[in-house]
């Protein structure tokens, strides 16, 4: 029962652009699910459909057994979202922001006040509670929005690119907060920072051009990837003969060989015998993503 399930979700926008193409998957609604993909992959479209903001062209989905199309009202009781590019309203304070959202969800004034205070404290925002949102830093503003949805009873929380545009320190602070929230509720987040998914997501889905190309825990993604190991060679090193591997050379001249376990170890043996310096590591999410999506995500990837 406690699952989020998508069945052939397809979205074709009015200008005939296909943003989602038969997306089907199922994830447990606990912990953190990270949906990754490049800009334009269809992440926002998928999230907006699941959060009952956007009609799919075809297909359906359910959240904890409730159909997002036929039981829309019931779904809306259980969810909350911080949309991509949502902003805390300028003329309000964090306390007013959280409080008014809770009133909208139908809490009494007294409950809304209490829950707003609690949520602000939980996110370490108490010293900003009565400062205008317009005077807060970018990271703090984002935390205000997360405190807002967190304060509610929603058990499924959608966060569309919650850390985009934040500095690395604020981002890490948010990760801590999200990890903590993920212990008691289900967070469905999208990101194009692979490190973010690697750091905080329990399960990861990879979206490419509106199709879901892979889904699972990082270990599962690694296992299902054709290559499990990555070997890096310094510039100007002779690449040994390869049977089944993918080779990329970065701008700085480093060669990366991705291959499966047996070949990786035989290459490693060969390189050590020749006294060539190299490093060998399991593939990262970055490597898997690069291989599946076949497009550059890091500037130092060059074919």
């Amino acid at each position: 029962m406690a699952k989020l399930e998508c069945n052939g979700l397809t979205k074709i926008y009015q200008d005939n652009r296909k943003a989602l193409d038969e997306v089907s998957f199922s994830v447990e609604t606990s912990g953190i699910f990270g949906l990754i993909g490049r800009n334009g992959a269809g992440k926002t479209t998928l999230v907006r459909i699941l959060a009952t903001e956007l009609e799919p062209t075809q297909g359906s989905a359910s959240i904890n057994g409730l159909n997002i199309l036929t039981q829309e009202d019931k779904v809306r009781e259980k969810i909350a979202i911080v949309p991509q590019e949502a902003r805390a309203i300028r003329w309000m304070t964090p306390k007013q922001t959280v409080f008014s959202y809770l009133l909208w969800r139908g809490y009494s004034m007294r409950d809304a006040k209490r829950l707003a205070d609690e949520s602000l404290i939980k996110l370490g925002l108490q010293q900003y509670a009565n400062v205008l949102n317009s005077k807060l830093s970018g990271g703090t503003k984002r935390k205000v929005l997360i405190a807002t949805v967190m304060a509610s009873e929603a058990e499924v929380i959608f966060l569309d690119e919650p850390t985009t545009g934040l500095d690395p320190i604020s981002r890490r602070e948010l990760w801590e907060i999200l990890r903590d929230i993920g212990k008691t509720r289900f967070i469905f987040l999208t990101t194009h920072y692979l490190e973010e998914a690697e750091q905080i997501a329990d399960r990861i889905g990879i979206l490419k051009d509106g199709r879901l190309v892979s889904i699972g825990t990082l270990a599962e993604l690694r296992k299902s990837s054709p290559y499990q190991y990555s070997i890096k060679l310094p510039p100007k090193t002779q690449v040994p003969p390869l049977k089944d591997a993918a080779v990329t050379v970065s701008q700085s001249g480093y060669t990366q060989i991705m291959t499966h376990e047996a070949e990786a170890f035989s290459i490693a043996r060969l390189l050590s015998e020749q006294g060539i310096k190299f490093s060998i590591t399991p593939v990262t999410l970055d490597d898997i993503f690069f291989h599946l999506v076949g497009q550059k995500v890091r500037e130092n990837h060059e074919t």
Partner: peptide, 22 residues
């Protein structure tokens, strides 16, 4: 303004608030 610049309406649609009350 609230819908486009702050995405407030999206937050409200995905919540138990009806369009009439909003």
């Amino acid at each position: 303004h609230l819908k486009n610049d702050f995405k407030l309406q999206d937050m409200i649609v995905s919540s138990p608030t009806s369009s009439k009350l909003y």
